[in-house]
Simulated scan of single mutants.
Amino acid sequence: MEHAVAPAARRWFATALIALGVALATAGCSPAVPMDAAVDASSPDCAAVTVRLPDVLASGTSAEQAERETNAQATGAWGSPASVLLRCGVEAPGPTTDRCVSVDGVDWVIDESDEPRYRFTTYGRTPAVEVLVDNDVVSGTTVIAELSPAVAVIPATGECTTTGTSIEDAIG
């Protein structure tokens, strides 16, 4: 004797199979970007930064950079492959002779030693935020301008003494 399956049960089962297939197919499209959490990543200030990070960064030089999932607390990544990496909770930089620019009230020290990959680290904010930018893919100027509002939630306790250089002049 055959068992009859109700049409509603068949539709539910078919819908569930389709949903599972879609979930499995899209799960492997964009794996999490592997990153290491910074020492002070568990700071409430880092949590405040993380929830304010933009979903997309306009690159200024090419296509927009979509946010990617990361595997570490208080981090962010954009682009595929990732061209912008952010870590909150890094050690605040001390006095330096590296260039420092102010963008929307946030001071950033620029490490150009691995050009065209630039490291921007907030100055005068604890915990500090570090942003690595591949300037061949995305404009560091644009990235820092778009991330500064999120980072500004960390109270400033100091500032660079020489911020006369504009960010455009600093990284071309």
Rank of each mutant, 00 (worst) to 15 (best):
102 S>W: 00
51 V>D: 08
58 A>S: 09
72 A>L: 06
93 P>Q: 01
81 P>H: 14
52 R>N: 15
76 G>A: 08
59 S>T: 11
105 G>P: 02
58 A>K: 11
88 C>M: 08
102 S>I: 02
96 T>E: 03
58 A>C: 00
63 A>G: 13
64 E>R: 15
88 C>R: 01
92 A>H: 03
43 S>H: 09
105 G>N: 05
85 L>S: 04
101 V>C: 13
70 T>P: 11
67 E>D: 05
59 S>M: 11
59 S>K: 07
37 A>N: 01
48 A>M: 09
99 R>L: 09
87 R>D: 06
67 E>L: 07
69 E>S: 14
73 Q>K: 14
103 V>W: 04
84 V>W: 00
69 E>G: 11
41 A>H: 02
41 A>N: 03
51 V>Y: 01
86 L>W: 08
95 P>W: 04
91 E>W: 10
41 A>L: 03
103 V>I: 14
43 S>W: 11
58 A>Q: 10
98 D>I: 00
89 G>A: 09
86 L>A: 07
99 R>Q: 13
81 P>I: 12
37 A>L: 03
38 A>I: 05
91 E>N: 13
68 R>F: 04
65 Q>K: 03
72 A>Y: 12
90 V>I: 11
48 A>K: 11
91 E>K: 10
98 D>T: 00
77 A>V: 10
104 D>E: 12
94 G>C: 02
104 D>W: 01
94 G>L: 02
81 P>G: 13
59 S>H: 07
58 A>E: 12
73 Q>P: 04
42 S>Y: 13
36 D>A: 15
71 N>R: 05
94 G>I: 03
89 G>Q: 08
60 G>T: 11
89 G>F: 03
68 R>Q: 15
56 V>H: 03
44 P>R: 07
49 V>H: 00
102 S>D: 13
101 V>F: 14
101 V>K: 10
66 A>M: 12
101 V>A: 11
75 T>E: 03
77 A>D: 08
48 A>F: 04
77 A>K: 07
37 A>D: 04
49 V>E: 01
68 R>H: 12
75 T>S: 10
